[in-house]
């Protein structure tokens, strides 16, 4: 009798796991073109498209969840969603706490943007978003770091002269510089930071991570990931070979 109860309990458990095929995808929704809220109020962007395709290939039911950037990792490890897909660069410190898939976005550069050419980015005042890899880089570079709560404010700081330059993801800055009508320009060298962008998982969730890893590899192999990269980031973007190595354009 006792045995029987245990079996049903075990059955219920496995059933629970089988039922939990809805995968909750946590993202920020404030970082175009990676992820943002479109006019209709839905999550949109490069990662939305990639994520949906990955779910289709891994045969999973996915649901998108928005979460504030600052608490995005604590909420993942606490189990409020199952994966982070939010333009998160793979770094060593993050890797200690969560696990990443292989990158679905090649290691990219960060860039400085200023209001005029010839700004001294190594010794001037450089703005960055609080607690980003860019902020860490500026703090070490010898420039005077000034941190703002949101990416929006870092750009505004350069426009109104609070800071000489801003350091942020190159791809985030491109549309802003293009539409500024010459007011903002790229300065200095590109700074390679981080190991590309990957999806984050709980360390105990190796199975789910494996599924997505496989799906990413298949998207790299058939070139569909490259199409999306070019669609969202333009022709200049680095892409992947069929075996997953990065091709710089």
């Amino acid at each position: 009798m006792k045995n029987l109860i245990l079996t049903t309990a075990a059955l219920a458990l496995t059933a629970g796991i089988a039922m939990a095929d809805t995968v909750r995808m946590g993202t920020e929704g404030a970082y175009p073109p990676y992820n943002f809220i479109n006019d209709a109020g839905e999550i949109d962007g490069f990662e939305r498209e990639v994520g949906d395709e990955l779910c289709k290939r891994a045969n999973l039911d996915c649901e998108w969840v928005k979460n504030d950037w600052d608490s995005i990792i604590p909420n993942l490890v606490s189990g409020n969603y199952d994966t982070i897909i939010a333009g998160m660069s793979i770094t060593d410190e993050r890797d200690e706490v969560i696990d990443f898939t292989q990158n679905y976005y090649p290691p990219t550069a960060s860039a400085y943007v200023a209001a005029a050419e010839g700004v001294d980015v190594a010794g001037g005042i450089v703005a960055a978003q609080t607690a980003t890899i860019q902020a860490g880089h500026v703090a070490e570079s010898g420039a005077t770091l000034v941190e703002f709560a949101s990416p929006e404010e870092t750009i505004a700081a350069v426009r109104n002269g609070e800071a000489d330059a801003v350091l942020a993801d190159y791809d985030f800055l491109v549309p802003i510089v293009e539409e500024s009508g010459g007011e903002l320009v790229f300065v200095g060298e590109l700074v390679p930071l981080g190991g590309g962008i990957g999806m984050g998982f709980r360390e105990s969730d190796a199975e789910l991570r494996g599924k997505f890893d496989e799906a990413i590899a298949s998207m790299k192999a058939d070139g569909s990931l490259n199409e999306m990269l070019v669609k969202w980031f333009g022709e200049g973007i680095s892409t992947y070979d069929a075996d997953g190595t990065v091709v710089t354009n």
Partner: peptide
């Protein structure tokens, strides 16, 4: 608690994963 992860059984999740 497994390392940094906080893991409870599926049935205890709030709200349920489904």
């Amino acid at each position: 608690r497994q390392g940094n992860d906080f893991i409870v059984c599926q049935a205890a999740k709030l709200p349920l994963g489904t």
